[in-house]
Design a protein around this nucleic acid. Structure first.
Lengths: 253, 253
DNA sequence: CGACGGCTTGAGGTAAGTCAATCCACGTGG
DNA sequence: CCACGTGGATTGACTTACCTCAAGCCGTCG
């Protein structure tokens, strides 16, 4: 059983059994656990370690001096919290746990070594960072040019695809244990308005939300409402995977 | 006289004379020129070359099927247009020239070599990409949690800092030959509303716009209105530079 | 049971969008 | 040298998407 980070990077690269073992070892050496509401890393920190999400849901966010909060990205298992650690002086934003979250710690110095190795690790890390860039750009389009309804549809569809890719979605349902207030902070609207947009999506028969499970009832129409185009996720290889983990992600693209 | 790319990366790294020469050579080998409105690279392209802006003003943008356009970033001399080229299959967005723009072309394969070399080039490229991530995140905060007035103030202040860093701002004035409609596409508002926000900034005595030159009349207040915090630009080294190029950028931070 | 956090609903209020006219700077051709 | 055309800036009147404030609801947990 492989860890989510390796699985994610294998979207892009093929690792040898030894490489996988190295990566698996890295994921088990040191671990940490964060309660909902805790910060995994904080703006201004310069931790000696990188954090990789193993389970749970986290988010990148910033808080303005007057208390307004913006979530810039959701982090799901396999995501790297702080690529900046091994180059930049300090974090320019925080990463917080939204649910109980487990992370693996990797020494920054160890990361630097991986970059130097003649394996495909360096390229896989580049791939991860470049797709992060793509996701952030799409979020800017979201905020700048899509209305609240489309925005909500877009982020939900994106989460569906991302959960599919890591094999954490059964059919079109996935656990999304998030508060409407957090969703508002991510989509740049009030909790009240987030609520209304979710209601509209339900009324239109596009999604259902029972407990903490979000089910996409009509992926085709949701995708259309969102104006979703998966190219920015750079899942080029998702199609030709044989191991059954994410073959269905291709349907959504 | 060094090229803007080298100058930019020296914000982060110290290059040896030989390295500088290599970089300078790369910048002069092959060049291209684009008229305003032209695309330098288009969504879906997979060019064999990377492009580095040498002069002029360009932007990353996406156009939605219904014609809505969002500018996600401005590119000024020294900026790399398409880091994705040497890893990803295709561009997920376009880069267009807003003014007459000159770029240097670097073969993707040459870039990959630079990443492997035991110089600080790889790290300098990481630094550039990681700060791009920071800028995008700040833009998301802009769009999600700042109103139109603050947003306009923020982007103007950011451009002032960035132009200062590359030595292209005299005091608090810099050439910003951009249409109000483009500014609207970048800040996520209508051209009409962009116009009104600029008017307000002028009325408040924060900026002046004569021809294509933007002058910041009251940097301190502009910064305050914008709620600007420079940490996301990661200019840590700007302070201890001795060569007189950007020592004044420190004032703004 | 009561308290609490999160969800839902309603009634205004306001920032920003829409539409359309006018103005202004410029470049071009007669 | 002037008439004209064009793209961008400006202005005003009206509409609307989203926010604000506030109350009520509902499930969970001590």
């Amino acid at each position: 059983m492989h860890n989510p980070w390796t699985m994610k990077m294998e979207q892009f690269a093929r690792f040898s059994p030894e490489q996988r073992q190295t990566l698996d070892a890295l994921m088990t050496e040191r671990r940490r656990q964060n309660e909902p509401g805790d910060d995994i890393i904080r703006e201004g920190d310069h931790s000696p370690d990188c954090h990789v999400v193993l389970s749970g849901l986290a988010c990148r966010y910033k808080i303005l001096p007057d208390g307004r909060r913006q979530i810039m990205a959701f982090l799901i298992p396999g995501d790297l919290c702080d690529a900046e650690i091994f180059i930049l002086k300090e974090m320019d934003h925080s990463v917080g746990a939204l649910t109980l979250t487990k992370t693996a710690l990797i020494a920054g110095s160890r990361m630097k070594e991986l970059l130097r190795e003649p394996s495909c690790m360096a390229e896989a890390l580049w791939w991860g960072t470049l797709t992060d860039l793509g996701v952030l750009r799409e979020r800017i389009v979201d905020h700048g040019r899509r209305n609240a309804y489309e925005r909500m549809a877009h982020i939900i569809y994106e989460m569906l695809v991302r959960y599919r890719v890591i094999g954490a979605a059964k059919d079109d349902a996935f656990e999304f244990p998030i508060t409407q207030s957090d969703l508002g902070d991510a989509t740049g609207m009030t909790p009240v308005h987030a609520n209304r947009m979710l209601q509209k999506l339900r009324k239109e028969g596009l999604i259902s939300l029972k407990g903490k499970v979000l089910t996409v009832l009509d992926p085709k129409r949701l995708k259309q409402v969102a104006g979703f185009n998966a190219n920015y996720l750079h899942l080029d290889r998702a199609h030709d995977r044989q191991d059954g983990l994410d073959q269905r992600a291709g349907d959504l693209i």
